[in-house]
Each structure stands twice: as C-alpha cells, then as structure tokens.
Design a protein around this nucleic acid. Structure first.
Lengths: 225, 225
DNA sequence: TCAAAAGTGTTTGCTATACACCCATGA
DNA sequence: TCATGGGTGTATAGCAAACACTTTTGA
C-alpha cells in the first residue's frame, strides 16, 4: 500500500482545528490540555485538536475534537482565528483554524469520555510549556473572551441550567479579576432580561438559601448596546 | 513533466486568502471586485484572492493580493474569518482565510497597478451576483467593520494624510448610515486625542475654509473604553 | 448679498457608581 | 448565638444627547 496516495499539482498545506476549551473551576479560569504522546513536542502539553477530514466542515471538525475530549456537544463554540506561520509545525506546513469553547463547570466530569491520552485542566494564569504556537492561540482566545465580556452576555455560557446570582457574579469577578458591587451587579444582570427565576431555592451552607435562575434562551448570546 | 507531483498520505485541502477591500467613494462604502476570467464562475465578479504559497505567511498572502490589485502596501489589513464549507469550490476542497482592508479614497487611483483582469468598485449596498461564497464573506466583513465603529477608531483608517473634521464626520455617517450632530461629533473626535491640527487650511468651495488635521499615529487603531 | 459648509457652549437626561444594613439558614 | 452568604434602595457624578447661531469664503 502506497503511503502517499493523494497528489496535487501544487503543494497543499495540512489543515487542523485546535480548540481552547475554557471552564471556570475553583474560582479560576481554566482550560483543557492534552499531553502529546508522539513527536513533535512529545510529552509536552497541547490544545486538543486534529486534522480536518476532507469532507468535513470546519465547525464540525472543532465540535468533533471538543466532543472527543469532553463528551459535550451543545456548548458554546466559536471560531477564533487562523494561525499559519510557515514553521509552526516542524513536520510540514500546517494551517490551524483555532476555536474556543465555554463549558459550565458542572459538566466537567463528562471529560472521562476522553481517549487514552492524558488530559488535564490548567488555570490560564499558570500554564505549563506548550507545544507549537499554542501559547499564542491561548493568549488570543483569552483576549477575545475578556473583550466580549464588555459587550455581550458570553459569560452566561459558563452557567449550568440553574444558577444563583452569586454564582453569576463570581464568574464575572473571576473573568475580569476584580470585585464587583453586589447590588449594582444584580441590578445590571436583571435589567438584561436574559434570565428569570425558576421559583426554586438552593440550600447550601450555613446561610440563607439563594434563589435559582435560568437563562430564558440558553443557546443565545446577546449583544449589549 | 508530471502534473501532480505533490503527494501526501492523507488528502489536503487547498488554502487561499480572499480580501475584502473597502473604501469610501461618493459618500458610499464601496469594495473592489474582480471579474473572473476562467472557470468556475467564469465572468462573474469575485473578491481578489489567490492560493497560499507553501512558504508564505497568511498575512503576507493577503497583503500580496491587496498589493497586486491596488498597488498599496501600508494600509489597514486584518484577518476576518476562515470559510471552509466543503462544497464552496466545485473543483476541490478549498479553505479560504478571508481578510479585509480599509483604504483612503484618495489613494484609489493606484489601482491601475492591477493585472489584466477587469476590476471595479461596487457599493456594498448594490453588489452584482458573486462567485463562490463571496457574498457571505462580504456580509461578514461589513458586520465586523460596523461593529468596530462602536469600540475602536478603525474608521480613521479611511482618512488620507490630512483631512477635515467634516470629512471624518462624513465617514462615520456613511458607515453608520445615519446623521450625526456636528458639535457632539467634534467634541467626541477631539476628546479621543488621536488627531491634531496641521495648522493648514483647506480652501474648497464657496464657504469658509476648514482646518486640516492629521492622525497622531496613522497606523494605530485604538480601542475605546 | 447669497449660498454653503465651518466653527462654537450650555442644558438636560440617563446610566454607572458608591455605599450599609437586615435576612434566613445550619452548626 | 454566631458565622455565612443572600437580598435590598437611594443619592451622586459623569457622560451622551439635544439644540441655534455666527463666521468665512467664492460666486
């Protein structure tokens, strides 16, 4: 069997997608990395990703990588940027179309669906050395995420099905790395008209139970004036 | 000489860049299209673009296309989005990394540097039928441009070296398709501290001459709070 | 003298911020 | 009863929007 059976008149680069999978855990923004089992960069940590199937849409490819590592399918996934520096992969020319995903911390245990490769969560502020140009990809994704906080409700995508206003505030405080005034935050969050009370309470800890809320439209990110 | 000499173990897509080149002319946002000389979509209008050289950076490829069509090198050029629907090109799988560029209307005549292919400016609001998925690319670029008006000084990239406040206001009015209050606009524009008077006046028409301004840093787009 | 665009401040309304105390619960 | 996070309103400041007349020029 020939090892090189797909031929073209002009040289073609390989195309991959890589996915920055963010979650919030332990009040820190974290992301999922895979330890590489083969060369190049063997043993180093890298973003989940892989080659584009020749008949596969770009979004599908990224969603497939995401599902392989987390088992999740219906989470926020957005194309980020395309990285294609000629020497970014020592083997051959590789163009990487980077995506980023936001997943609620609750769903994280589904990650057991991962294949044999070692996978782990790392705080964005404390990453190990990374393969390829993945540090640059992560920096770009982090910037995009923080920028979108100001003009969209993207952070709501970190919420599970029901949540308290305290949890929502915690997400914003973690992402912006700042403390927010409780009354002002609640006024703002409710004025968006994106969330509604479920009528349930969450009893947790030695204190007054918190009202639970849900997103009126869980899959929609809205943009602020 | 063999016609298919570049072979790979797995199929590889072709990779192109396409560039949406915007300018403002006759108080309308316009963009540059090329009439296709060959199949597919022969005779239809399309964005300037072409295949990525195997050792060429993505930005270089887009800049090269831009220069080939306009002769311009130092203009605003930003990666937009990557389009890769499997059947978007009937010949083979093609991934297009789309860019957009903004050029001052004054410099437009340099477009004579174009090759033999027919090129023309079209108002965004009145486009001909387009090849491939170029209509979608243009829609995406237009949305990005309009969105950036609200939180950056990207529109200043349409300005020539010296300009009047009236011209700047005209650019904003054209892009946002709305009329703006002259006093409020001037207050806002000057408060940005991105422009300064040249000391010159422009005499033009039967009316009071206008003060000329320049960008303090012509190549920098700044982001608003 | 007329037409046309340049140039110039103040008032008003709204949004964002600052700020402190009581409530309900489990230990 | 104590510790813990949940829940609530008002006053102030800063920014954005509305608004009209005088200036300078060329025809």
């Amino acid at each position: 069997m020939p090892t090189e059976q797909h031929c073209y008149q002009y040289p073609h680069p390989a195309v991959t997608t890589d996915v920055v999978i963010f979650t919030i855990r332990d009040d820190r923004l974290q992301l999922l990395l895979i330890r590489r089992g083969g060369e190049p960069f063997k043993g180093m940590w890298a973003l989940p990703g892989g080659f584009l199937d020749i008949d596969e849409d770009l979004d599908q490819c990224a969603a497939r990588e995401l599902e392989e590592e987390t088992g999740l399918t219906d989470v926020y996934l957005e194309q980020l940027y395309t990285f294609g520096r000629p020497q970014r992969d020592p083997r051959e020319r590789v163009i990487s179309i980077a995506y980023y995903a936001l997943i609620p911390s609750q769903k994280m245990r589904l990650q057991a669906a991962s294949d044999a490769a070692e996978a782990a969560w790392f705080p964005v502020s404390d990453l190990p050395p990374l393969a390829f140009d993945h540090q640059e990809i992560i920096r770009t994704a982090h910037h995009r995420l923080v920028a979108k906080l100001d003009y969209s409700t993207i952070a709501f995508q970190f919420l599970s099905e029901s949540f308290t206003l305290g949890e929502l505030q915690g997400i914003y405080e973690t992402l912006a790395d700042s403390e927010l005034d409780k009354r002002n935050f609640r006024k703002w969050a409710l004025a968006l008209e994106q969330i509604e009370e479920t009528g349930e309470l969450r009893r947790q800890g030695n204190h007054r139970p918190a009202r639970l809320y849900r997103l009126k439209d869980p899959t929609t990110v809205s943009y602020l004036k």
